[in-house]
Amino acid sequence: MSEEQNRPLQLTAFCVRGEPISYADALRGTFTPIAAGDAWGPPWSTTWFHVQGKVPESWAGRRLGAQFDLGYDGPAGFTCEALAWKDGKPWRGVDSNHRWLPVEGPDIDFYLEAAANPRATEQGSEPAPSMIALRASPEPAFVLRQAVLTSRAAVEAESDEGPLDPRHKITSVGHAHIDTAWEWPIREAKRKVARSWSTQLALIEEYPDYVFAASQPAQYAWMKESYPDIYRRIKEKVAAGRWEPVGAMWVEADCNLPSGESLVRQLLHGKRFFMQEFGYETRILWLPDVFGYPGNLPQLIYAAGCDFFLTQKLSWNDTNKPEHHTFMWEGIDGTSIFTHFPPADTYNGSFSREEVERSVHNFKDGQSSNRSLYLFG
């Protein structure tokens, strides 16, 4: 991209230590100028960025966006992220996978609620950093690398690679796997859901054929309580068939340690929430990131009124990989449930050609089926 296609944006910042504050309270804060190269965000703090700028008249008719590098030092979920607020409402998420916000009109004016989330664990022999020490540290954890108005080509270049094998049919499903309990405070998990789901709502508006799937009624309940505008829009998209609640369980629960009664209650509370809130009964147990399953699970799935089970994590086994991708799983009481492992061996697909081809060539049940799911997002 040539130099004249980027213009710096004007930013001011207001840092909040401790627990996050509301958008209305943030507007009353004291904002000071900040620019690319400046440090921001002590660990676990929140920095509100006020983003302003003007679109040059000579750029009229171009595809424009505000592009950010907040100082990401890891993949999404392991580093800083932000929720963009526009006209007082949650707009879109900004993270290492979503760095670009669309710009319309001559004036640019919105806010970023940026979470300075440090990387909580490190692999290797060195001890992990103390979360308590990080929380108390006054030192900024990140450096703002980029905040520019940028011009993009209206049409992306098409791949000149050949077509994929047409005999195998892939249904691609956009979803956002978000651990309800992760390497950050629960309040950060709530903000992560708002960042991810506001982005999906924007994409649904942009792409008329796009349908998004999201599990875990617990996270819907968070949106209902803390982000009513996001929740209102989700309900509209569910009613329009553009957003599919999946999962059946209250959260994507561990299935190794809990008792059968605990799993029953996961199914009871999960299905009841979707039925009461959306008038929708999900028929699938959606557990892509669970590390194992008890032999009584088919019986519980069937008794809960579900017909299908989706999972994936066992494909990462280094020794005893699953022998099938699409099969009937028979439980210890003889109950059978239609089960599917997406053959791309991931639930966070990037839609690369390599992953899509893997869905075709890695599929182990081609003699009985020519269809599979591909989970991206």
Rank of each mutant, 00 (worst) to 15 (best):
Q123A: 10
A248W: 01
T199G: 14
S226W: 15
G105E: 04
S336N: 04
Q312A: 05
S226C: 03
S226V: 13
D107N: 09
D73I: 00
K271F: 02
R191S: 08
F278N: 04
G292P: 01
E244S: 03
D107V: 12
L287F: 04
F212Q: 12
H269Y: 15
S151A: 15
I332F: 12
F291N: 12
E126I: 00
N256F: 12
D365R: 12
G241N: 14
S96D: 03
S130E: 01
R119M: 10
G65I: 04
H325P: 04
T121V: 03
C306L: 05
L375N: 07
A66V: 09
H168F: 14
D69Q: 11
K313N: 12
I34P: 10
Q67K: 11
Y210E: 13
T30K: 09
P166V: 06
M223K: 03
G41N: 00
R119K: 10
A84S: 15
A147P: 09
S159Y: 03
K321H: 10
R28C: 11
E244D: 03
A303M: 06
W329G: 11
K169S: 13
D25N: 13
E126C: 02
I337M: 05
S336K: 11
R283S: 13
W329M: 05
V55C: 02
R232M: 03
D289C: 05
R272I: 04
R62K: 09
V211P: 03
Q276T: 07
L287C: 11
Q299T: 13
E261F: 05
A202L: 12
T311C: 12
E139Y: 00
